[in-house]
Amino acid sequence: MIELNNVKKRFGFRTVLSGVSFQAPKDAITCLTGLNGTGKTTILKSIMGLTPIHGGTITIDGSPLHHTSYERIVFVPDQLPMPGRMTVEGCLEFMSDHYRNWNPERAAELTQMFKLGLQDRVGSMSKGTAAKLNLLLALAMNADYMLMDEPFSGIDMFSREQIASVFSSELVEGRGVILTTHEVKEIEHLLDYVVMLDNGRITKQFACEDIRLAEGKSVVDVMREVYET
């Protein structure tokens, strides 16, 4: 379980997170949603120790982030974070060099499935291809948690379908996934929990199946209600 407790964060004098608390269990897909600039990405970066927080606590299975945690929790930023001159092969090598939990067989499998050329360079890839490689670098790791920032934004429909199919495959089985998106509609049947943010604050959080069972509402219905009031 990834647990945020009253997390506060500023950029200069601007408050970007004002007391965010939620829990993302293992074995579930949790979605952080909200309009752009409400702090979704900042939350993921804070969990990953890529930016400091100014209050509250973040724990992973009960303990704070440590550099060894990076083998249990992987982050997929919205852009592939590899140097432009590196080849696909170079990227795979970098990962297997540094991560003991790297799974080379799965990497090879996914390279084929996504039709990536080993000699293609990061800098000259299409957005869709870069998004797939970005995802591959996380999926080929045997990690407990996977954090994904806007996995569906700015890519073509075909790549989007391929990426969505990952969420219904064994690749996420037994893992805790946190993803951010401002477009819930296409993927709402894939989600377990939704955390809605507005201006660095949580406006509502719920389990999707519970709200369908109890209130007969879809996730989009709930979002509409919250943002229209």
Binding site: M48, V74, H98
Partner: peptide
Amino acid sequence: FMSRLLMVP
């Protein structure tokens, strides 16, 4: 690339 470097375990 820095985010990747910072996440090296």
